[in-house]
Design a protein around this nucleic acid. Structure first.
Lengths: 150, 150
DNA sequence: TTGTTAGTGGTAAGTTTTCCCAAAAACAAG
DNA sequence: CTTGTTTTTGGGAAAACTTACCACTAACAA
């Protein structure tokens, strides 16, 4: 589930999901849209979202575990069950749109990644790319070191 | 049972529970509302509340286990049996309202989570989100690492 | 008794969201 | 090119939801 795409949100808060991404999602229904850990949104299939949920909430009395509770509150709980309309558009609930800074008529970036689709405002995305450009080469170094050390 | 919603408490201390959450509660009656471990309120179905109660109180010598006794006192005992009126409003008993800092006419956040609904004042919620925002991206990293390591 | 406060139940207007259709655009094949 | 097909965009109508308000009851105090 990979690829980078840019689309604009229409005035009703709907976002066109590119066909290539739709194919990979497999279904137009049973999708979960939630807050990410960094101001964007994550779109999951039901299976992958359930897997995430199980990781966080697994075990008796997880509800009294502070760290688990925090992740739950910030990532799991805000999730909304969504679906694409028959032309492949995702209608993003207002509260999630506001969280991600996705104004109607603004541009956003759709990123396919391993088990999810990331939706991020183009403005934030571009800023992030500039900000982390230098850091990226360092990450590359770390990776090389790890690989060499294997 | 997920989704984040914001609503205001009316001047009589009633809170509109969003339809999507009501669906997932299944019933308008046999609900339990209680104190959480951190200044918010938890709304459970009867079944899920009983399950929680069992987790905390059953098991050998739970009655002599200090932690179990504490949770019992703070979370199980204060629970009130409540119901929604036919327009989906939850009337929050004054003592629980005061505990959670939910003034009439104030805004509050309704969070669906695995087996319960969390009700928290918007002011507290926003403060919490700001406070834990940095911590969150680290937690996110941990999650990703765990997932990659599967 | 009378007034005040807290809680309950309901209606109706206004807004938002959802669903669907169709025009426009992009694309592919002949 | 031209035609047919798919994709994208825009918008209207219907349904659903929210908000604000009002009337009533019960409990309590003056």
């Amino acid at each position: 589930m990979t690829g980078e795409y840019r689309n604009t949100i229409d005035e009703k808060g709907r976002l066109m999901i590119p066909p290539k991404i739709r194919e990979q999602l497999g279904s137009y229904t049973d999708l979960y849209l939630t807050k990410s850990t960094d101001g964007s949104l994550w779109l999951y299939t039901k299976e992958d979202f359930n897997a995430l949920n199980r990781e966080v909430n697994y075990g008796p009395l997880a509800v009294f575990n502070k760290k688990a509770r925090l992740i739950d509150m910030m990532v799991i709980s805000p999730a909304r069950e969504v679906e694409l309309d028959k032309t492949g558009r995702l209608s993003i609930p207002q509260i999630l749109r506001e969280f991600a800074g996705l104004e109607p008529k603004s541009e956003c970036v759709i990123l396919g990644s391993m088990s999810k689709v990331e939706i991020i405002s183009a403005r934030k995305y571009d800023e992030m790319m500039i900000q982390y450009k230098d850091m990226l080469s360092d990450l590359g170094d770390e990776l090389s070191i790890q690989r060499m050390g294997q």
